[in-house]
Design a protein around this nucleic acid. Structure first.
Lengths: 313, 313
DNA sequence: CCGGGTCATCGGTCAG
DNA sequence: CTGACCGATGACCCG
């Protein structure tokens, strides 16, 4: 930080608003000459980049910030509630939410953040010194980058399947394409978790392999609903048909009627085989599902694919 | 890159005539090496230094004082009008003018003081203890400083009333104090919106005056539930008794049973006067309420007061 | 090169 | 306003 301050004061005495262009026209010729490393602009904040991190050219700060954010799974709130704060070198620390959003927007890969390892040294030193090997605490799970990618692909396939299923939803399918797309691009993650948590095969290993601890927690929680096929369908309708996501007044009415229909059907279905409690529990589960999904980094995992999936089919 | 002043100041403690002796004999051998943290004298007042700040070895107090002075840009006047007051640990607070002069004299770097950032934005610390959770905060600027301050005060009173009511909730009140506090510090905003949206008087003007458009939307949405007193009580229980917020395994069981009880009661109550739809609609409204609350900046509005309120009563 | 961790030094907090 | 305290940041190093 001191370093940062020093750099600031020496170069740009004031908070210069035009930072991103820092190396736009200056460096090109001198680049190959004697530069220690190729200077490029951080795609997140425009600061000097130290190379690629998590798939994107960015500076140490943004790289580190991204790593910590993903590891801890903290969910930020935009300081201005707009979600469009300026993220440049001088202001990147003002709004963590917008900084993280920007990290994801430029394509930083959540899955590339590894599990936390133990402290760096000690183990060897102590082992040499005495004979008492201390427990290396964090079982370094370097994991297989290859198998990891494979698992991700499979999960992406599951995602496609879930969204196809949503498209076939009896009520949802009747909506106009634009309305469908508007809804799905918002609630796709809820659809995914609902279905994936009740997948016929055990896919927990693949979910673990994605390296997103949040996703794991969400799925585990959703799994506790133990919904059957009928219940899943009704819940899916309730996820898909939310009048708040209507693009027009008529659609709002339509969506509400769909949701009401699903509610009544679900009530009938659950009451006939057990009691009211089941009905209420499922709906409360929906609340939990919604909240968790929007608090999580789930989206970033499939960010690249979900857009295309929603469009096609 | 690093401050020249750093090297300078660490050696020439001479600037301060009376100070240097403080730790001169304690750290003799290890001085220059790379000791974890060498206790040294603050170059400004001679107190124990906690490391370099703004380029100079100094204590937390002088560091903080310097930061505040630079940020606020206040001009002090020497209390003795001489500009040569003694600045040592015991007397550093007597004359801010001379203290600041001394900060500058020993080379503290004004440019290293960054601009003020917003309040810390934390957001939901998921996992772990499940208890500690101040909600997302944001800098809702002073805005309504003048005329609206009154309205804000009234709303804060309403908030107090809502939380008192929550504390009296038939189920919630039986929980241990620590558990109550853990839950309320998370869901207080849901409690507030639920009650405020169904307030007996029309408080929409005050809500508007708070200058948070999000809050307005949330309240309007919640108002559409048109819940009666009984329903409100059941919904409140469902907000308060979420097993995810349990601080212990036993409490999780307890909370779940409370929620189940509320579900059954609400079902009985609603079915006798209309139908299943009402029951389901209310629960979906709960989902909407939860999501909106955590997406909004509501918390920042009451950030300063809610903490105290939750603690007291 | 790009993952990881480290730690001096920034930031804000909040009783006193 | 003060300052002890703690979380966040990022330049730097290792493997």
């Amino acid at each position: 930080m001191l370093h940062q301050g020093a750099a600031d004061s020496s170069q740009q005495s004031s908070t210069a608003p035009t930072i991103p262009t820092l190396y736009s026209g200056i460096v090109p010729t001198t680049t190959t000459a004697h530069t220690p490393h190729v200077p490029s602009a951080c795609q997140v904040c425009g600061d000097q980049s130290s190379g690629k991190h998590y798939g994107v050219l960015c500076c140490d700060g943004c790289s580190c910030f991204f790593k910590r954010s993903v590891r801890k799974g903290t969910m930020y709130a935009c300081i201005a509630a707009k979600g469009n704060c300026v993220v440049d070198k001088a202001r990147r620390n003002w709004c963590p939410y917008c900084r993280l959003q920007r990290c994801l927007a430029v394509g930083m890969n959540v899955a590339a953040v590894q599990e936390e390892r133990g402290p760096r040294t000690q183990a060897t030193a102590i082992a040499k010194h005495g004979g008492i090997t201390p427990s290396p605490t964090g079982a370094v799970n370097a994991v297989n980058a290859t198998g990891n990618a494979m698992n991700f692909q499979i999960l992406a396939q599951i995602l496609v399947t879930c969204l196809r299923q949503a498209k076939c939803n009896e009520q949802f399918r009747t909506l106009a394409a634009a309305q469908q797309e508007a809804i799905l691009s918002t609630v796709w993650n809820e659809c995914f978790v609902l279905r994936a948590s009740h997948w016929s095969l055990d896919i927990s290993a693949m979910i673990d392999a994605c390296g997103d601890p949040q996703l794991r927690r969400i799925i585990v929680e959703a799994k506790q609903l133990r919904a059957d096929v009928m219940e899943l369908n009704f819940l899916e309708t309730l996820i898909l048909c939310r009048k708040e996501l209507a693009v027009s007044a008529e659609n709002a009415v339509l969506l509400e009627s769909y949701a009401n229909g699903a509610l009544v059907s679900l009530a009938r279905y659950t009451i006939q085989q057990s009691n009211w409690l089941r009905f209420g529990t499922l709906l409360l589960g929906l609340r939990q599902l919604t909240q968790r999904c929007y608090e999580s980094l789930l989206s970033s995992l499939f960010r690249s694919v979900v857009k295309d999936i929603v469009k096609s089919l």
